[in-house]
Design a protein around this nucleic acid. Structure first.
Length: 574
DNA sequence: CTAGGGTTAG
């Protein structure tokens, strides 16, 4: 008889599995290993199988073996309800058979997916009790769980304590650091790995590229790409996609497109989506939509991410009607809309001043609108000075328990625009009574291969006095060009002069000033900010680009701004 | 027929 593996491989539907099960039952093989466990495993994890059916079989086994449990725990860990795997693992500890290393592996994987940190620690203590402490694979999984649950210190600790490490262990920590808002540490580890004589593979470079993208570290990114080419890692479409994304996020959309256009491997849907999103971030709506068409012509089927990228492109390019048409065509094409699609059109309509339509769309949503949607609408209300709508949006935000400082400032600015000072005061009072949160803004800039980070009002940089002097100079020079500080971007509970100061030392201004004093005349300055650029900084940087003859590229949370000769690529629409 | 399991782009 053919082996159970080869028979399972031929199963493409649940009925095939059932036939095989019947066959095993009649031949009496079902009660023996490894056949039963292998069938269970296949049924629980393969797309041809069915997890409920696997669970059903499992419950009818009088004394399940370790491998039967493993099959179910593995299946549950991969399912939409990974916590069920943890529950199952706990019931197993009351069963007569013992968990093995594999059981622990699947349980830890479930913890990672369920973001269950304390459960992961419990599984880990079991790992030690059962004597699997030195298992490299388990240690790597554990490291990954810590990283994914946001406990990077413990992830590093596990890594440091490992007696043996292989490439996957390094990869797990590099990826963990990159995805856990410590991209600089990820890059450092990437370099250290090479120093220690390990050869980076495709997974390693993905982590490194992700770190470069976040930091906007073009030099690093470029050198990673050179390595990729030398090692021929670019025959992997996933690697190519990450390279395209890296170039796009580091401000070189042309290079991103070059990589896209010169790929030796087959493009995937992600490849197209990445490139469309890249054009969108630059406000090049025409190219983005062209690519969207090309993608369809090439036979790819756009998914919800493709539509999001295209909508985003319309949004950043002010192509309102195209955007609305795309949004409406989604249903026809059978692509489901999520909160982000709604967010994008609401933004699109809001910025065009079509507030009523935006409001109607929010109310027509089949899912609960999130905070971001109402904030978007509120922002549009501020732009168009619509008090009624602003009050509606604010009421929703308060109901939803939003404590964001920006929301209060927006509402108070709408009132201020109509000189309704009593209402302004009321909002200010509400802010004091609540513990409003401010997300700290920061900016990165790379100078001579070193990445510097600035926070608002930063005085930690060794050259901070020089930087502040440069900013004073800038402030003086731009006033000649008629600059007036746009202080309505600041909280209302401080005086005018303080407001100007608060604006003056925004992280992006500090980074640009540092760029001016530490790079050669005429060279391009690249800055990367975690939040959206503020209106005042936008005005100031435009003027800087003109007065100092510099091209300045600022990447903010959502897009790129390319400042040149006094104007910005976004045409002040963002 | 007693291994299998870990790291991965939009």
């Amino acid at each position: 008889m053919a082996s159970i593996e080869s028979l399972l491989q031929k199963c493409t539907a649940l009925t095939h599995i059932k036939q095989l099960q019947a066959h095993l039952l009649t031949t009496g093989l079902f009660q023996f290993y490894p056949s039963r466990s292998k069938l269970l495993d296949f049924c629980a994890t393969s797309s041809a199988g069915s997890l409920p059916y696997a669970t059903h079989i499992f419950h009818h086994i009088p004394f399940p073996a370790t491998n039967d449990w493993n099959a179910i725990i593995r299946g549950l860990a991969q399912s939409h309800q990974p916590t069920n795997a943890i529950t199952c693992y706990i019931s197993m500890s009351r069963a007569p058979c013992k968990p093995d290393a594999l059981t622990c592996s699947f349980a830890l994987k479930a913890c990672a997916r369920a973001l269950a940190r304390s459960e992961a620690l419990q599984v880990f203590s079991q790992v030690i009790r059962l004597g699997f402490k030195a298992d490299v694979l388990l240690q790597t999984t554990l490291l990954d769980v810590f990283a994914k649950t946001g406990d990077l210190n413990n992830a590093c600790y596990v890594f440091d304590e490992m007696g043996m490490r292989d490439i996957a262990s390094w990869n797990a920590l590099i990826a963990g650091l990159a995805q856990g808002s410590r991209p600089s540490d990820a890059l450092e580890l990437f370099k250290k790995m090479k120093v220690e004589g390990l050869k980076a593979n495709d997974v390693t470079v993905l982590g490194a590229l992700s770190a470069c993208s976040q930091l906007g570290a073009i030099k690093e990114g470029e050198s990673v790409y050179n390595y990729i080419r030398d090692e021929r890692l670019d025959d992997n479409v996933i690697v190519c996609n990450a390279v395209i994304d890296m170039y796009a996020k580091c401000g070189i959309v042309e290079k991103a497109y070059w990589v896209f256009d010169n790929m030796s491997c087959r493009k995937s849907l992600v490849t197209w989506n990445t490139m469309i999103m890249a054009f969108a971030m630059y406000g090049d709506g025409v190219k983005a939509l062209e690519l969207f068409k090309q993608m369809v012509q090439a036979g790819a089927v756009p998914d919800s991410v493709s539509y999001l990228a295209a909508l985003c492109a319309c949004n950043h390019a002010g192509m309102v009607d195209e955007g609305v048409r795309l949004f409406e065509s989604m249903a026809v094409c059978g692509v489901s809309r999520n909160v982000k699609h709604y967010g994008s059109v609401v933004d699109l309509l809001g910025r065009a001043g079509r507030l009523e339509e935006a409001y109607k769309i929010i109310n027509s949503m089949p899912m609960v609108p999130d905070v971001v949607l109402w904030q978007t609408l509120l922002g549009a209300c501020k732009t168009y000075g619509n008090v009624d709508m602003a009050e509606k949006a604010s009421r929703k935000l308060v109901e939803m328990g939003s404590n964001s400082c920006g929301d209060f400032v927006l509402l108070s600015n709408v009132y201020a625009g109509h000189e309704r000072w009593e209402d302004v005061g009321r909002v200010r009072e509400a802010m004091k009574n609540r513990d409003v949160k401010k997300v700290p803004g920061f900016s990165y800039i790379e100078v001579d291969n070193v990445i510097y980070k600035f926070v608002n009002g930063d005085q930690n940089h060794p050259k901070w006095r020089e930087i502040y002097m440069k900013l004073d100079e800038i402030r003086f020079r731009i006033k000649e060009f008629g600059y007036v500080a746009e202080t309505n971007y600041v909280l209302h509970d401080i005086g005018q002069e303080e407001k100007e100061n608060a604006l003056c030392y925004h992280s992006e201004k500090l980074a640009v000033a540092f760029g001016l004093i530490s790079t050669s005349d005429g060279s391009t300055i690249n800055v990367n900010k975690n939040l959206r650029i503020c209106g005042d900084c936008h005005v100031v940087i435009k003027l800087i680009s003109k007065i100092y003859g510099r091209e300045i590229i600022v990447r903010d949370r959502t897009r790129f701004h390319r400042f040149k000769e006094g104007s910005c690529s976004c045409r002040d629409y963002w």
